[in-house]
């Protein structure tokens, strides 16, 4: 590792991603997020530190973890229990769990090693593809992120950032220099609702968005849609208002809500998951059409709506 190399806490590096920006991309999931969305699809990335995940279905009750745990957080009898409150996160149980029932989510990887992984798929990127940083919220590890983006750019690798937009205002300029595409989340356009469900402040997010736009950062707006939350005319009007004021936004990509994160929440021992209603295929298309008719360029299911 170079002396000035940076470590980044990530959950995973996923190769051959087809829907995380243009072309084939390698997506790096950063850990840590300032928001707390009730519908979070990547709950294992919220916490900035490594976490033990337990998938009960894979456990064969061999007892190895029980005997190795220094604080007695793992027990077999009368029931197989993992007591998170007692756990000090030493990871010993994980290394002796042969079945993969216990795993650690989160590892420190140097930016250099991340770049090496990303470069493995150079032949597949073509002119468009490359690295996407996602999470969590990548800006949560600001220094590591900037270092990584810079390293990617010096290797001529295309870069995308998937961001919730909640980051310090002074970061925008630094990002614009090394980011080819901002996949910028607009989760809701109603101030109160956004606060209620995610904890975010709409005006801060919009400030960052327009700031990036003013510096000619290329933008793709990504909008989660959830029935009875934001699938309404008011949201459409607001999105149009935002989209039409941006000079560098190419389109709005709709991300229909799904409860994918819930099984991972369970493995993390979180009991606070909310399940929302999933939009039907018809509702999605209707919303997409309405948004498109209002004057936005809309992408849905991988294609621009015509």
């Amino acid at each position: 590792m170079k002396t000035n190399d940076k470590n980044i806490m990530i959950t995973d590096i996923q190769r051959f991603c087809m829907h995380d920006g243009p072309g084939i991309r390698t997506t790096v999931f950063f850990k840590g997020c300032p928001l707390n969305c009730a519908w979070c699809h990547n709950p294992e990335t919220k916490n900035p530190n490594a976490e033990i995940m337990f998938l009960a279905g894979k456990c064969i009750s061999c007892g190895a973890c029980v005997s190795v745990c220094p604080v007695g957080a793992q027990s077999l009898l009368p029931n197989r229990v993992f007591d998170r409150k007692t756990c000090i996160g030493c990871g010993k149980c994980v290394s002796c769990c042969f079945t993969g029932a216990l795993t650690i989510s989160g590892k420190n990887v140097s930016a250099e090693n991340i770049i090496a992984s990303v470069k493995k798929d150079l032949e597949f990127y073509g002119e468009e593809g490359g690295l996407t940083v996602s999470g969590g919220e990548p800006t949560f590890q600001k220094e590591g992120l900037l270092y990584l983006l810079d390293a990617a750019k010096s290797e001529n690798i295309s870069t995308c950032i998937e961001t919730c937009g909640a980051f310090p205002a002074d970061l925008a300029e630094k990002l614009v220099n090394n980011v080819d595409y901002f996949l910028f989340d607009i989760k809701d356009t109603n101030k109160q609702r956004l606060k209620q469900y995610t904890g975010a402040a709409l005006q801060d997010i919009l400030l960052n968005l327009f700031n990036i736009d003013s510096m000619n950062g290329k933008i793709i707006l990504r909008c989660i849609i959830i029935p009875n939350i934001n699938m309404n005319q008011e949201h459409i009007n607001n999105l149009l208002n935002i989209f039409s004021k941006l000079n560098n936004a190419e389109y709005i990509e709709l991300l229909p809500y799904h409860p994918y994160g819930n099984s991972k929440s369970e493995q993390l021992g979180r009991k606070d998951t909310t399940v929302f209603q999933r939009p039907t295929e018809n509702e999605i298309l209707e919303f997409a059409k309405a948004l498109q008719k209002s004057g936005c360029i809309v992408k849905c299911h991988g294609s621009i709506i015509k």
């Binding site: 051959f16 087809m18 829907h19 243009p22 072309g23 084939i24 798929d121 032949e123 597949f124 990127y125 073509g126 468009e128 593809g129 992408k299 299911h301 991988g302 294609s303 621009i304």
Partner: peptide
Amino acid sequence: EGDDGLNAIMGLLRG
């Protein structure tokens, strides 16, 4: 699916 998926297949073939 979609144009994105199409581009991905093309990228795969090129690679």
